[in-house]
């Protein structure tokens, strides 16, 4: 029966040891452990949640980026098309302008040539007139050297007047 009767000394020391252990651990032990464990669990949960959200966001961002890229590509194509159109337009315009300018130049050139020609003609005519006058003078002077000739002319002139 000795086994079933609690020994006072052991009860006494067990009580003291247990109370002391309990007080020490309740003050400095378990709360720290539980708090640490919980805060770590929370951090992990938070991390998982963060990762999930981040992934979601990344997916969204990716989609958005894709959209942007597509948009940009569309814009680029459009711009390229515009550019091509503009290029042809510009070339066309330039061609037209060049043609215009050329035409104008040509016109101006023609005009000046015409003018020059007219001037030259005029000059030439003047020259020719002068020459012919000179020649005529010279011829007249030659022919009118004799009085006979002068008289015949006068006669002829007179005849002509008379005829008229």
């Amino acid at each position: 029966m000795e086994l079933f009767t609690p020994d006072f000394g052991l009860v006494f020391w067990m009580f003291i040891a247990f109370i002391l252990l309990f007080l020490v651990l309740a003050k400095w032990g378990w709360p720290v452990i539980i708090k640490s464990m919980e805060s770590r669990a929370n951090t992990i949960d938070q991390g998982v949640e963060d990762a999930r959200k981040a992934k979601e966001q990344l997916d969204n961002a990716r989609e958005e980026a894709k959209k942007y890229v597509e948009e940009a590509q569309a814009k680029q194509a459009e711009m390229l098309r515009d550019a091509a159109k503009m290029k042809t337009e510009i070339i066309e315009q330039a061609k037209q302008e060049a043609a215009e300018a050329a035409r104008r130049e040509m016109d101006a050139a023609k005009l000046s040539i015409e003018q020059a020609r007219k001037e030259a003609e005029l000059q030439f005519r003047n020259e020719v007139g002068k020459f012919s006058i000179d020649i005529a003078e010279k011829m007249v002077r030659d022919q009118m050297k004799s009085d006979d000739a002068q008289k015949r002319l006068v006669d002829k002139l007179l005849d002509e007047i008379e005829k008229n």
């Binding site: 020994d7 000394g9 020391w13 252990l21």
Partner: peptide, 18 residues
Amino acid sequence: DISITKNVAALFISTAIV
């Protein structure tokens, strides 16, 4: 009798280990 018997000593050792 509150002697530090074998059991009490073991009790202290257990306490220390915990």
